[in-house]
Each structure stands twice: as C-alpha cells, then as structure tokens.
Design a protein around this nucleic acid. Structure first.
Length: 280
DNA sequence: AATTTACACAACCGCGTCGTA
DNA sequence: CTACGACGCGGTTGTGTAAAT
C-alpha cells in the first residue's frame, strides 16, 4: 500500500500556471495569508490546484522580492563555495542569496554553473564530443610537503560556518564528502604518505571520528550524481588539481594513490583532498 | 520552411522531518 | 510515547523555445 496522495489528482489542474491563476493565488495570499495550511488553501482561494503546487508557485515565482534573471559573478562564487562545502542543500544555499529560490539555484547549477566551472560550457548548442580517453594515473613523487594554496579553499575559508553539526560532534556519514564539517579539524594520520588513505578525522577538540570505509574526503562534489560524461570530466579536472597540488610540494604514497585513483574511477567516486582546510 | 536537437526552467513527486493532538 | 497530517526539500520530469540541420 502506497502513501496516500496529498490531493485528488483527478480533480486538480496540473502543468503551467495561467496568469489568471497566478493573480488569484497572489491576491488571496496577500489578503489572507497562507493560513499555515497549504492543503486547504487552493479551495479557499478558489483554485483547482494541489496545495503543494500552490506553495511551490508562491515560493518560487509569486512571492515578493523574487529575483529573476542572470546570476552575478558574486552569486556564482557563493553558490560554488557553498556547494563545495555543504553539497546540494539548495535551501541553505538559497538562504544566502536574497531573492533567489532553491529551485532557481538548483536549475542554475545543473544547467549552467556546473559546466561553467568545469570549463565545459559549450559555445554552441551542439552535442558535446565524446570524452577523450582518460590520462594514466599521475606519476607521483616523494617530496617534503609544504603549505599549498588551492584556488577553491581560499574562498572556502571566507564562508560562514554551518550551524550544524557542531565541530565537536561526529558528522553524519553522508557529509564526509563535504569540507565544512572538518574546517577546524585535522586529518589523522596526517603524515604525507597517508594522504589518500585517510581513515579518521580529528576535530579541534581532539575527538577522532572514524571515516567509513570507502568514504573519501574530497572537494565536496559527489560525482556519483553526475552523468557519466560529466563525471569523467569532473574527475579529470580534480585529478589535474591534485597533480598540481602535488607539484606544489604535497606528497602522496604512489602505489596507494594510484590504486585509489583506479578505484575512484571504477566506482565513479572522486577521491580528493582539501589541504588548506585540513591544515587550518 | 520543416524538422530535430539541446537547453532553460517550471512543475511534479516522493520521502523525511516536524508539530500537534 | 505514538500516530497522523502538513510541510519542506531535493531529485526528476515535462514543456516551451531557440538554434542547428
């Protein structure tokens, strides 16, 4: 037995909203408010719509101060920073961008920003060429680690800290892909050769949390949600980043790292690190 | 000019969470 | 404490339109 439907689908209108329906909904809410009950609102407002549909229409389109149109560079930066920090929690991201809705940001990310940031935004509307063969795993060398500046982490450090979980409580397993929760934590063991085989996170209050097997600390992306082509592009991009970081003086255990890369590729899970935050 | 393809974004769906009786 | 209904969220689908063929 499935979940009971929220409304009688046979008797509600679906699809795009007409200007008349918009006017009805807007007039009603501006006059009487939502009454804290979206389910009964369409009936009260004289609309043949599902309450959920009314809520969405109001929140995403009709309510005052909604900002439409192009996103600014500053908004791009904020979205990117937050996405790399907390992942696809669009409502939280939207809360940082007055006038923007979670739906708007989600659409923007999925259709434009993700590609723009990966350098994939096509010049035309032509179908992209099939991905080039992936390069072989980077040949890694052993050097003395020195502080590394990542172009991403410089900005991440400016972000407001998330409300929860607190730095001193174990984050839920799903957030291990995201960096905000280790902002003031250090990676343990943090010896150079252990990069890529991180198995625990130590907080600033010296509590050590175990990272689940197969969970990786990364830039915040969860490429499993990308399609195959983009996933490859993302991983290639990040691979380049890690090579760059390596060349800047970070050390990796060559065998382990190559093995992990192969694993990451086959599982479509990206393995990566965020040095500044780990150190900080 | 007609058709196809790709894109943008609006809207829907289902599930988890929260508030309340 | 539990059950239930409503809300909110994130993923997915649908639709209109512009660009390419």
């Amino acid at each position: 037995m499935g979940r009971a439907p929220c409304c009688d689908k046979a008797n509600v209108k679906r699809g795009l909203w007409s200007p008349e329906e918009d006017a009805k909904l807007k007039d009603y809410i501006e006059s009487f408010g939502t009454g804290r009950n979206w389910i009964s609102l369409p009936q009260r407002a004289g609309l043949r719509r599902c309450g959920k549909s009314c809520r969405l229409r109001w929140l995403n389109y009709l309510r005052p101060n909604i900002k439409h149109g192009e996103f600014s560079d500053e908004e791009d930066r904020i979205i990117f920073n937050l996405f790399t920090t907390i992942g696809s929690r669009w409502s939280i991201i939207a809360a940082q961008l007055p006038g923007r809705t979670d739906n708007d940001i989600k659409n923007y990310w999925n259709t434009k920003l993700k590609k723009k940031l990966m350098g994939l935004l096509p010049n035309s509307r032509r179908k992209p060429q099939p991905p080039a063969p992936l390069p072989p795993p980077p040949q890694l060398r052993t050097t003395t680690p020195t502080p590394v500046t990542s172009p991403f982490s410089q900005q991440l450090l400016l972000l407001p800290q998330p409300q929860s979980p607190s730095p001193c409580s174990p984050p839920p397993s799903k957030v291990y892909h995201h960096l905000a929760y280790i902002n003031d934590c250090s990676i343990s063991p943090a010896t150079p050769s252990s990069f890529g085989t991180v198995n625990s996170v130590q907080s600033s209050c010296h509590e050590t949390f175990t990272v689940k097997d197969q969970a990786f600390l990364g830039f915040g992306y969860d490429p499993r949600s990308f399609d195959s082509y983009e996933n490859q592009q993302v991983m290639m991009k990040m691979k380049e980043e890690s090579v760059h970081l390596h060349q800047d003086g970070f050390d990796f255990d060559q065998d382990t790292n190559q093995q992990r890369w192969a694993e990451a590729m086959s599982n479509e899970v990206y393995l990566g690190w965020e040095y500044d935050l780990i150190v900080g």
